[in-house]
Design a protein around this nucleic acid. Sequence first.
DNA 1: CTGCATCCCTGGAGATACTG
DNA 2: CAGTATCTCCAGGGATGCAG
Lengths: 140, 140
Amino acid sequence: MSPTHTDVPMAPAELDPCGMPDHPDCGIRDVLDRVGDKWSVLVVVELASGPRRFGELQRAVDGISQRMLTLTVRRLERDGLVTRTVYPTVPAQVDYRLTDTGASLTHLVKALADWSLRHREAIAASRHLYDQTHPDHDIR
Amino acid sequence: MSPTHTDVPMAPAELDPCGMPDHPDCGIRDVLDRVGDKWSVLVVVELASGPRRFGELQRAVDGISQRMLTLTVRRLERDGLVTRTVYPTVPAQVDYRLTDTGASLTHLVKALADWSLRHREAIAASRHLYDQTHPDHDIR
DNA sequence: CTGCATCCCTGGAGATACTG
DNA sequence: CAGTATCTCCAGGGATGCAG
């Protein structure tokens, strides 16, 4: 088969039967695989400000490689979080924009941003303290 | 230096200057590196039900290796999301519990779970459709 | 401009064996 | 029980070159 390096990876398997009330991770993983992905979040955040073209996204996200951007938007498209529109112009032109679902995800990201903002200092302090209290754990 | 395989990895570098209003990823990454981590989430979710001992956690999370559990709780501890208490009993005993900060994170996880539950069908359908519309992207 | 195909390399993660 | 120490494997992701 030889799947190329740029095809959509996706979830290899569902691992939560979604049943026990004590383990509310019924579909969390699906989301987290997106939200947890560094690039996905940054792309979604960028698209939250409006539709963007491929190049614009790449410049906006800053640091993302072409391959990663392609993979990221592909996954988001596959999940129905963004739409990909191709304009058959001379030099190909494509724009990406959030779907309603994708837009709703933005709210969660905002919430996360909010949370991290409220706790970032505490976390930083905690880390600092930990690093001093546990010098043996030679990190870095 | 030879850092062992069980020391805390952590964020290698801050990459967002946290300034531009259009890029609200000021501290998101810090959170996402936790929230996005499969094991971290599962552990936090488990601890949301109350304090757990190492073994209990390992059994509860199911699938996590000793090393990963150690790393996960270490990171969470370092970030001040969980506290680690050692009871100098004969067979060592340790319990982990969420801090207030960690508990507040639970709410976000719940929100994510909520969102994913509301959209899981749509996403699944989208994926299915995508896979059929783009057979060329030979996945699997 | 947008994207696909390759090469390549590092770090994340599992398995296993050992210790206070 | 609760880790720690190693070894190993492989997928994620960067760099580069080619194509529609």
